[in-house]
Design a binder for these strands. Sequence first.
DNA 1: ATGACAAATGATAGCGCAATCATTTGCCTT
DNA 2: AAGGCAAATGATTGCGCTATCATTTGTCAT
Lengths: 341, 341
Amino acid sequence: MKMAKKSSEKKITLIDVAIAAGVSAITVSRVINQPEKVSEALREQVQKAIDTLGYIPNQYASSLASAKSRVIGVAIPSLMNIVFTDVLRGIYEVLDAAGYKVLMVDTHYSPLEEEKMIRTLLSQSPEAMIITGGDQTRACQSILQRAHIPIVQMMELLSQPLDMNVGFSHWQAGYDVAIHLLEGGYTRIGFIGARMDPRAQQRLAGFKQALEDAGKYSNDSVWTTDKPSSIGMGVELFKELMASTKGIDAIFCTNDDLALGALFESQRMKINVPRDLALCGFNDIEASQYVNPSLTSVYVGRYDMGVKAAEMVLDRLNGNMINNIADMGYEIKKRQSTGQI
Amino acid sequence: MKMAKKSSEKKITLIDVAIAAGVSAITVSRVINQPEKVSEALREQVQKAIDTLGYIPNQYASSLASAKSRVIGVAIPSLMNIVFTDVLRGIYEVLDAAGYKVLMVDTHYSPLEEEKMIRTLLSQSPEAMIITGGDQTRACQSILQRAHIPIVQMMELLSQPLDMNVGFSHWQAGYDVAIHLLEGGYTRIGFIGARMDPRAQQRLAGFKQALEDAGKYSNDSVWTTDKPSSIGMGVELFKELMASTKGIDAIFCTNDDLALGALFESQRMKINVPRDLALCGFNDIEASQYVNPSLTSVYVGRYDMGVKAAEMVLDRLNGNMINNIADMGYEIKKRQSTGQI
DNA sequence: ATGACAAATGATAGCGCAATCATTTGCCTT
DNA sequence: AAGGCAAATGATTGCGCTATCATTTGTCAT
């Protein structure tokens, strides 16, 4: 690392500033971190040196010396899914405002990849972690607990959270959707799902239970794939389901992308929604409210969930007493696609 | 920081591992960073100690000592806009695969906030930076250049990039859209735009130029707002434009959200698209292709742009010679909403 | 078996900063 | 004016790791 660099290339350190300002290094440090502890005259003098030299503190040295990183690690399954980017936004806004940096990783829906990524995150000495769901590997849960930092598991309610938990019951939401459709008089109710992550599977399980309770469940009306969800995939799954199973009069789609695909394709196939077919999505993305016919969906406070997760983290870091569990709930937005209004 | 912690709480360091494995600290370091330099026997012995102790390296100490951070800073204007999350995904995938961490900040479309955030990023000693557009403050450009790291400005083509640049000409895209509409025989062509960032303004400028060249520009057919773009905002702007200006027979929307809002609202108003009104969006999100009628839009390789930006960074870091400028182009996807097919 | 060289391992120092404790300065009281 | 105390400033040390150079061990040709 010993290179004779041009002076313009040499990194400016605290010491350089201290010399330029004619003070000790620690005083410069104080101007940056605890300005109230430095007299105004000196503070200005030092600040001027900082500005003229273009000094930027080295966060690594600072974190190493202070054992504080101001970093929060966030692990989400995918950046492709608006659900998680909305949650991420909520997390980011709160933590950014509180002066924390967010280090985000994408686990690609894989617990093994998640473990690897969480190791990477932990090597950044985060002061807390926000992760998705509860299907971490044993090893991953173990290293998380040994980190002795606040941990929030979000997106779903867990029976045994590692620490804190914010989410809602996907099972119950699936159950309630089935009830809504049954109450609408629909009897041959299908299901299409893509990227069946643990939460989508719980929605399916709740949905199935409700139909079984009503004696209306049929195995051949459930079409799922592990491939990513998209509008195009909704078109595909919809066509497959309709071609293979006759008499379907309602479909619960694991999310709004699929539902929009199904809706657009049914329009092309001249199937009238909701007269001939009811459609219900999940997540309530903005388009669902505006599309014609408007699409029944399950509203989930994604942004709010991110905010809540971040707030729980901050409360814990600030030593406030809080509930470790937050049920964010959900709401079925009943719209035209299931015969409302 | 001197606390008598339970042994389970004490942080495991390299030294602990070295003692447990009966080797020197530097050997443990090598097992982690340059395993090929350690004999297989020792390597296994050390690895076992690492695993049983659950050792996680302290990245701050490592970065401080080695002056390497493996961090790339990314600054985007908003996490709410799918355009940027798609780009971010492209960046993330490439850099993650190459073993880099991505530190992302959201500048909220504000150069002042951007400057603050970029300072934060730089304090993490990133090995390179990927930022959006070219409207940084002077101070921000100055500290970026003094950082002496590779910098990519993305999303648009700049006349004077700080370093590397990947994007496309928004002006030309706007111009081409206007030409497409003119060629379709539309004569009273309106424009609605939300969140008029520098790129949207360039699209408007190009659009305006084409209409002026054709003698068809009219000031009162342009409706914009600084508020964020959304489908709902598309509905609003569309209603305002249609109510205030009679005879509009085509509308260019700065993005697909607005265009979808306009489309959905025109359906509700029984305005036939494209017979009575042509609509053209921008960005070509997935819904545009599937909605009925399908929506003409301008395809932009968002993910690819992120990939390209990341690749340029990696090439530079690896010392490869590359072009500093990459024009990603765009493509007008002509669909039903402008009378195609 | 010996020397020459490469491979493997270790000892030392320092990265840039903040915690800690020591010292100085300023200000007020009497 | 002297003493006392708080505020302001400084000197020292170490955070956990890796660069660098030194030393040891292993390998091969002769």
